[in-house]
Design a binder for these strands. Sequence first.
RNA 1: GCGGGCGUGGUGGAACUGGUAGACGCGCCAGACUCAAAAUCUGGUUCCCUCAAGGAGUGUCGGUUCGAUUCCGACCGCCCGCACCA
Length: 736
Amino acid sequence: LMGLSLDWSREFATCDPDYYKHQQKLFLDFYKAGFVHRSEADVNWDPVDMTVLANEQVIDGRGWRSNAPVERRKLSQWFFGITAFADDLLAGLETLDRWPEKVRVMQRNWIGRSEGLRFAFDLSNGETLDVFSTRPDTLFGASFVALSPDHPLTEDLAKKDATLQEFVVQCRRIGTAEADIETAEKMGYDTGLTATHPFDAEWKLPVVVANFVLMGYGTGAIFGCPAHDQRDLEFARKYRLPVLPVVIPEGADPKSFAIESEAYVGPGRLANSRFLDGLDVDQAKNEVSSRLEARGVGKRTINYRLRDWLVSRQRPWGCPIPMVHCAKCGVVPVAEKDLPVTLPDTIDFAVHGNPLDHDPLWKHTTCPSCGGEAMRDTDTLDTFVDSSWYFARFCDTHAKEPINRDATNYWLPVDQYIGGIEHAILHLLYSRFFVRAMKKLGYTNIDEPFAGMFTQGMLCHETYKDQDGNWLLPEEVDKRSDGTAIRRGTNQAVTIGPSIKMSKSKKNVVAPEVIVDVYGADTIRWFMLSDSPPERDVDWSESGAEGCWRFIQRVHRLVTEASDLPPPGTTIGKVNGPDLEMRRATHRAIAAVTDDLEHLRFNRAVAQLYSLANTIQAADATSGAVRREALEALVLLVGPMMPHLAETCWEALGHKAMVVATPWPKFDAELTHAESITIAIQVNGKRRDEVTVAADADEETVRNAALARDGVIRALAGKAPKKVIVVPNRIVNVVA
RNA sequence: GCGGGCGUGGUGGAACUGGUAGACGCGCCAGACUCAAAAUCUGGUUCCCUCAAGGAGUGUCGGUUCGAUUCCGACCGCCCGCACCA
């Protein structure tokens, strides 16, 4: 339909057992290598899709497909140990210099590495409490210890304390309902417990439950230093806790330096901190860390925001997890000879929950270890697993092993990957993890899956609603010249909404089939490439498409109506006058379009081709051979973007071979280089005239030519120039 | 709030590492062809000024520079990402 060229011999479907049997093999290999683990954890449960989701698949607290608010559930699930690769994934980002900076930043933030100290407080109830801090230097400014509402200790305490229980419930409600966390008030609840300061047995800090402490980061507990952390400061002000500055900025007086409404987070020297006094922040961090490590109550830790990738899905499609649960032997991998574990032939979607879990026959099996009765794992793998290694499978789709190592080393990494920004921390992160794991298992030798990454924009269209508020398809709407619209075939007014990303739900879609029917495949291809840079969203409009269609007709006419063309392959001798100008334009276009296409600047390439067509059309005094050269260049350069037009024109020009089998045109550097050029002359930075001089003319010549121009003389009004700046082949600026 | 990006005619967008702002397309205006229309072709199209000459002009205000859409600072607006990350 679109005239795409695809190698169908490499086609496969990830839902095909022939594909996912290899994925199951990979899973087992990962399992044996320790890259997979089964753990009970608080996981994201999508109540609409009835499945758990990975952290990356929860957007603003909602499932990425269902858009339903996710719930937290404690479940035993399978995880890929992506966190073990966190540092390597972070370091690898530095090598991806052909990725958008935006995507690299997003991955960096998602991995969220922070260095700090993990240490324990002794509590008044005899327990110890682990906290994590990136600012152990501020320990003598501590005024409280805070627990997350979801912390196990909080849950313990809440069992005996109804008020705390209520407080926790309240925190959780705000946690998801309140969109603007910035305005959410800091709230706390005093547990009555105290924590002993690690460097002063007499110093007791109150232990509170605070709504701003997250269970998902660090240990779910912190010590609060109000002077040097904004959140702690707001909390301390509200509950009238001490605010003691311990880091004093350079030049400030330690005695008078006070914190008002802004915590001080900059550099400085320690004060009010006993043995730390006078040290700088880094020295103080080291000192505290070393002392607590020496006592065995602390450890320097690198903490990540990244969590292990939860891959179990309670869905009856995709790739079954090749594991068996045996009452005697525990969790046992399926034997490799028994792969693939396929889905049942018939699936009862009417059941509540996961159909595989309710299938009476499918889930019963025998234990690969003891041969006794056992149950299959009824979950399937996240479909993102399918796409995390398919690029490696494409290198050899018929390999017996999941991956043909030599083939991946030959083909990969992918030179130029193209996709949407929405994969920044999903597919693009998962694939990078897979490549690392696969490399450790000897499946491939590459370091990164995608050397070049390009995020393209979306196709957008206006939205339309009828009087009852129902969405209308563009083809159901007639636009009128005054900008309003009516429903086609009626007189009913239609409300025109903003142009947004095409989506089925908003009905603002123009099916490619319709466009292809009306204008042809080349028109839509050309239009999508022509107007905007590819990373930007494009508005579909009929008028733009008509313009493209006109261009196609024009190129076709230029070719078919050209007369006196010599046969293909005619060589061109020395030319001058209009012929030379035409040849120059042709070779400049070849150079420019080639460069633009290589840098994915399709809209500029298109503009160059419009110009070339204009020049050919205007140049009626050219000889046949020169005209042929120009037309052939035009057709070949248009080829990648409008293949159908190019092939038709190429044939009309008398060629037997197809454009796709014809080498890309080469430009003659001699001809792209102009003999004379027109450069602007400025006086005091304002353009006053221009002068045409020989290319690469020496400065003296250009200067004299410039000063002799009328516009320059007029602007100078008799004054002598103080200085004349000549930039060769660019500009002359006369300073008066 | 933090991070990233962006802001150019009626419009989509050009302008390479500071060097003629507005390429090219769309739209609009005028003309040619036509009985007329469509199609096609030619010319024009940032604003002010009758022409010429000139002046202003790339979100706003400053700065650096012979010269700034481009570099720097502050502000305004829009988009995207992250979001109480200890």
